[in-house]
Amino acid sequence: MSSIATKISVEEYLQQEAKAKFKSEYHGGKVVAMAGANFNHNILVSNIIGLLWQCMQKEDCFVLPSDMLLALPECDKFVYPDVTIVCEEAKFTEQRYGLDVLVNPNIIIEVLSDSTELYDRSDKFRCYKTLPSLKQYVLVASEEMLVESYERTEDNFWLLQSEEDAHKSIKIGKCDMLLSNIYRKVGFGTQNKKK
């Protein structure tokens, strides 16, 4: 027996999210529960945040983990990117219910999984592109060594740089990051888990 999901308003979502024990995203009236991430995913996010913090600590940038809620008004969505970077004054929607909702990310990084890859590459990227502040979108594979960076040009085109060699680096903001450092302690399959 299937059930029909009841649509709720943005106001109801924000009120509910401020009190929730678990994160959920808002997709055009539907509340979508966030699934837990696997070991590789969590190590990659941790490595990326650590590397970016080291590189950006002298700059006027904030490196934010996946608890930062982001508004995508053109798509009627609220989402939690894996890593968000703001290199200017952080701006938020009007705070309601004690919940900060960011509106001006400069860089967004998503770590791909089997269940999210198609969405991260298509619909989510399409929505991220509606944010005027966004300059770079980075996709990091969790089942192979591959980092893809899309950078916005002044003419509003998106240029792709892709790297899969552990000894080469990819630029995230002003930071040159070696893939071997991004993927440090990440194994593929079950080889990274101690027995």
Score class of each variant (00 low, 15 high):
residue 1 M to Y: 13
residue 2 S to L: 11
residue 4 I to F: 14
residue 6 T to Y: 06
residue 12 E to N: 08
residue 14 L to D: 01
residue 15 Q to R: 14
residue 16 Q to M: 13
residue 16 Q to R: 15
residue 19 K to I: 14
residue 21 K to C: 10
residue 22 F to A: 15
residue 22 F to G: 12
residue 24 S to N: 12
residue 27 H to F: 14
residue 27 H to V: 08
residue 28 G to A: 09
residue 35 A to V: 11
residue 37 A to V: 10
residue 40 N to I: 01
residue 46 S to P: 01
residue 47 N to T: 08
residue 48 I to Y: 04
residue 48 I to N: 00
residue 49 I to C: 06
residue 51 L to E: 05
residue 52 L to M: 08
residue 54 Q to F: 11
residue 57 Q to N: 14
residue 57 Q to P: 00
residue 58 K to D: 13
residue 58 K to T: 14
residue 59 E to P: 01
residue 60 D to K: 15
residue 61 C to D: 02
residue 67 D to P: 00
residue 67 D to E: 09
residue 68 M to P: 01
residue 68 M to I: 14
residue 71 A to W: 05
residue 71 A to S: 14
residue 72 L to G: 06
residue 73 P to D: 04
residue 76 D to C: 02
residue 78 F to G: 03
residue 82 D to T: 06
residue 84 T to A: 09
residue 85 I to P: 02
residue 88 E to L: 08
residue 88 E to Y: 06
residue 89 E to T: 13
residue 91 K to D: 07
residue 91 K to N: 10
residue 92 F to V: 08
residue 93 T to W: 04
residue 97 Y to A: 10
residue 98 G to V: 06
residue 98 G to C: 07
residue 99 L to P: 02
residue 100 D to F: 12
residue 103 V to R: 05
residue 107 I to H: 05
residue 108 I to N: 04
residue 110 E to Y: 02
residue 110 E to G: 00
residue 113 S to T: 02
residue 115 S to F: 12
residue 116 T to Y: 01
residue 117 E to S: 10
residue 118 L to K: 14
residue 120 D to E: 07
residue 122 S to D: 15
residue 124 K to E: 05
residue 129 K to L: 03
residue 129 K to E: 09
residue 130 T to E: 09
residue 134 L to T: 01
residue 138 V to E: 03
residue 138 V to Y: 04
residue 140 V to C: 02
residue 142 S to M: 03
residue 145 M to Y: 05
residue 146 L to C: 11
residue 147 V to I: 07
residue 148 E to W: 08
residue 151 E to C: 14
residue 153 T to N: 09
residue 161 Q to E: 15
residue 162 S to V: 09
residue 164 E to N: 14
residue 168 K to Y: 07
residue 168 K to F: 10
residue 172 I to T: 02
residue 174 K to F: 12
residue 175 C to G: 01
residue 176 D to K: 11
residue 180 S to K: 15
residue 182 I to P: 00
residue 184 R to W: 12
residue 186 V to G: 02
residue 191 Q to K: 11
residue 192 N to S: 12
residue 193 K to R: 15
residue 195 K to P: 11
residue 195 K to T: 13
